[in-house]
Design a protein around this nucleic acid. Structure first.
Lengths: 191, 191, 191, 191
DNA sequence: GATGAATGAGATTTCATTCAT
DNA sequence: CATGAATGAAATCTCATTCAT
């Protein structure tokens, strides 16, 4: 029960932090902003998290964990290399640009705000996500769908997708999935 | 003479700010850090710049201005669409990853730190740079070298290039120009 | 209880600020002075007041509010026009020159230190006090006690009273009430 | 010649300081404001005045000196006690409220900004002015025009006149001389 | 006489964090 | 679990003043 509520409160906090860190940036978001967003006093936050950075880490970990989960679930239903390729791109943009809290964009753009220690922890999670991507790209390359330098392709394509957050506007820009498909077109080799 | 020295001092300050903002981020760099880097007292900074943000803007304006200059000069010597394509990518990565002060990476990654007013000023400069890119991509598409959705391609390719700063390491990664060529390969259509 | 303590702490701060602003002037009083006077760190002040100016406004509002309260209470016990006339003068000088914290003299002499916004808020309070004066003077004029240009008289007499703070010395100067009576003599017509 | 120009420059500075100290207050006026108002750099001020306070003293001394001069000249032409009474009031308000630079109001309202040492110097000048007033009031009392407690009357009347600067507005308020006459009415005994 | 650059002390304010209740 | 108050270090910025040129 207590644990239940604890989980709830923590989750609320992480959701609020995601949103605020995304909107205003980590450094510019104060502990008071965070507390106010969930209706508590700033001192109370420190019952749930030991430091502000711990909140940032929690947001990021939730972001990357959630993303990986979504990806693996979606990949389970994709059969062909082409299907899988489409899936990785769509899931990435749906998560990044969809109207969820924004944990993924915090992960990307507040990376330099992390201390070295915190970074190490998160790198593992990120690597696991990128491993999934790597597999999909390798299969696609084997099928002649994309350039065979898949390690480079992974980094560049992910970079291109990440950057969409700087310019994508839902109004008149199509859905994130549409955009993912159009971007994929740019790097697909003719069959 | 006076103007000369003024330029020198201001330029020194901008160079130091570029470096520090890149290394530590804008928010985490204090005016004391900045002052110390050029050997003055923190109060003296404000003789040259009215606010810390004004320094950020100066760094960014210098970064994008310098980049545009370099690009236009280099494009003057490029003849074919393919040459031009290679040029825009190379100049971009040389500037971003080369061992200069890092003004360009500050421009990219501290964009959210700007006030709306400051942003407006810089958008003009950025647009001018992107217009050059657009022309090159349009020519390349006309020659069948790249996908014809050049507006999207511009954004995605630039995003991919921008992101290299997150993972590129000079040791064993080839030169920035090499990397530019390899990235270009990923989106070039067969001739 | 909490409210009680809150009130206490805030009141302490206002009292200290009254004294210091009176003694040294608003601009020359630092927040460190203020904090030290109540035994806290300078940063802690900003838990209670958002800015230094907010403290000035609080001092002034307390000063004028207190003065109006005293006046209205005292007027309740005055019967004749002459009694009332004596009352307004006495209350004014007792408050201004009496050994309370000095909020009223801060109100008078730091008026130009206020921002326009803050001033507007206080003008209402001041007007309410001057309305009480106006009534008393009007009654006195009707009774032939003072010159009938009561609006001018109000301003000039109040000015004369305000200015006493520049020269009144308790030692050998009589009490503030005595002084009030003597000043009143200067403008009384008919006995 | 040099002395001539020196005088000119100094006078310019004092005039500008009068105006700025009156408009913004002494503490809120920066040395840069002052310098800019006469078209020089802030460092150059210190050739003419050793400190900022020295400028304040110069403004005040000029203010009180000028006032005394005007008064003594005007008194020379006044014959009767009543004439003289009118003269002291008119000269005072003309100088205080007239559209000159405002040195007199600076004298009155920035008095607390002075260091003790500077104050001592100015007190002499002020006393000389008040002695002139005292004589006029004494004559007037002897003639039965005003209350015989002339020392108190001097202080209170001067206070009332000083305070006009807080509320007098040229538009629709009559001239300063008119106002002086009306104020005089308030304290004149029946003829 | 004047300037431009710098100084350096100090101002207000911010904010993550602590802790008694 | 939460609060309200406070801490204290540090941040940006201000400004009278100095001084070499």
């Amino acid at each position: 029960m207590t644990t239940q509520e604890e989980k709830t409160r923590r989750a609320e906090l992480i959701a609020a932090a995601s949103r605020l860190f995304k909107e205003q940036g980590y450094e510019r978001t104060t502990v008071r902003d965070l507390a106010q967003a969930v209706g508590m006093q700033s001192g109370s936050l420190f019952y749930h998290f030991r430091t502000k950075e711990e909140m940032l880490v929690a947001v990021m970990a939730a972001g990357i964990g959630d993303l990986t989960d979504r990806l693996e679930e979606a990949l389970g239903q994709a059969k062909t290399p082409m299907d899988k390729l489409r899936t990785v791109c769509r899931v990435h943009l749906d998560t990044l640009l969809g109207d969820d809290k924004g944990a993924l964009s915090v992960l990307l753009y507040e990376w330099p705000s992390l201390s070295d220690k915190a970074r190490a922890e998160l790198i593992k999670l990120r690597d696991s996500y990128e491993r999934d991507w790597q597999q999909v790209l390798d299969e696609a390359a084997a099928a002649g769908l994309v350039h065979e330098d898949t390690r480079l392709l992974r980094k560049v394509l992910l970079g291109g997708l990440h950057w969409t957050i700087m310019w994508y506007r839902p109004e008149g820009g199509g859905t994130p999935s549409d955009l993912a498909d159009r971007i994929l077109e740019l790097i697909i080799r003719k069959k």
